[in-house]
Amino acid sequence: MASFYGIGVGPGDNELLTIKAVNTIKKLDILYAPQAHKGGRSVAENIAAPYLPANLKIKRRHFPMTNDWEKKIKSWQEIAEEIAKDVKNDNNVGFLTLGDPSVYSTFSYIAEMLAERIDIQTIAGISSFSQIAASLSIPLMLDEESLEILPATADITQLEKAIDLNDNVVIMKIATRFAQVYKILEQRDLLSKTIVVENASMETQKKQRLIDYSVNDKLPYFSTALLKKGNKNVKSN
Rank of each mutant, 00 (worst) to 15 (best):
residue 122 T to I: 09
residue 47 I to T: 00
residue 106 T to V: 08
residue 57 K to E: 15
residue 83 I to D: 01
residue 117 R to V: 11
residue 65 M to K: 04
residue 84 A to R: 06
residue 123 I to T: 04
residue 83 I to H: 00
residue 79 I to L: 02
residue 116 E to V: 01
residue 38 K to D: 09
residue 116 E to H: 08
residue 93 V to S: 03
residue 99 G to K: 05
residue 138 I to C: 09
residue 108 S to Y: 09
residue 64 P to V: 04
residue 67 N to W: 08
residue 98 L to N: 07
residue 80 A to S: 12
residue 110 I to A: 03
residue 40 G to D: 03
residue 35 Q to A: 14
residue 90 D to R: 14
residue 102 S to E: 10
residue 89 N to P: 07
residue 128 S to I: 05
residue 112 E to W: 04
residue 120 I to H: 12
residue 73 I to W: 14
residue 42 S to I: 07
residue 116 E to M: 03
residue 118 I to L: 10
residue 134 A to I: 10
residue 94 G to A: 07
residue 56 L to E: 13
residue 70 E to V: 11
residue 90 D to F: 14
residue 96 L to T: 00
residue 72 K to N: 09
residue 40 G to Q: 03
residue 74 K to D: 13
residue 136 L to M: 09
residue 103 V to P: 01
residue 43 V to A: 08
residue 78 E to P: 04
residue 131 Q to W: 13
residue 84 A to W: 05
residue 36 A to K: 07
residue 102 S to L: 06
residue 81 E to V: 09
residue 44 A to E: 04
residue 59 K to H: 12
residue 81 E to K: 14
residue 66 T to M: 00
residue 68 D to E: 05
residue 126 I to H: 00
residue 133 A to V: 02
residue 131 Q to P: 06
residue 89 N to T: 09
residue 84 A to I: 08
residue 109 Y to A: 03
residue 68 D to I: 02
residue 57 K to Y: 13
residue 68 D to H: 05
residue 55 N to W: 10
residue 98 L to V: 10
residue 51 Y to I: 09
residue 116 E to W: 08
residue 50 P to D: 04
residue 105 S to A: 12
residue 104 Y to E: 05
residue 58 I to G: 14
residue 61 R to E: 15
residue 40 G to I: 01
residue 77 Q to V: 11
residue 63 F to L: 00
residue 93 V to D: 04
residue 45 E to S: 02
residue 86 D to I: 00
residue 88 K to R: 13
residue 84 A to F: 06
residue 89 N to S: 15
residue 116 E to L: 06
residue 134 A to D: 06
residue 89 N to V: 11
residue 77 Q to N: 15
residue 71 K to S: 09
residue 120 I to A: 08
residue 84 A to V: 06
residue 95 F to L: 03
residue 89 N to G: 06
residue 50 P to C: 03
residue 140 L to A: 11
residue 45 E to I: 01
residue 40 G to S: 07
residue 36 A to G: 08
residue 55 N to R: 11
residue 61 R to Y: 12
residue 48 A to H: 02
residue 131 Q to C: 15
residue 108 S to Q: 14
residue 112 E to Q: 13
residue 94 G to M: 06
residue 91 N to K: 15
residue 64 P to Y: 06
residue 52 L to Y: 14
residue 49 A to C: 02
residue 94 G to R: 05
residue 126 I to E: 01
residue 54 A to Y: 06
residue 130 S to H: 12
residue 35 Q to T: 12
residue 118 I to Q: 06
residue 53 P to V: 12
residue 96 L to K: 00
residue 54 A to S: 15
residue 96 L to G: 00
residue 32 Y to Q: 10
residue 56 L to N: 11
residue 58 I to Q: 11
residue 70 E to F: 11
residue 66 T to I: 00
residue 78 E to N: 11
residue 54 A to Q: 14
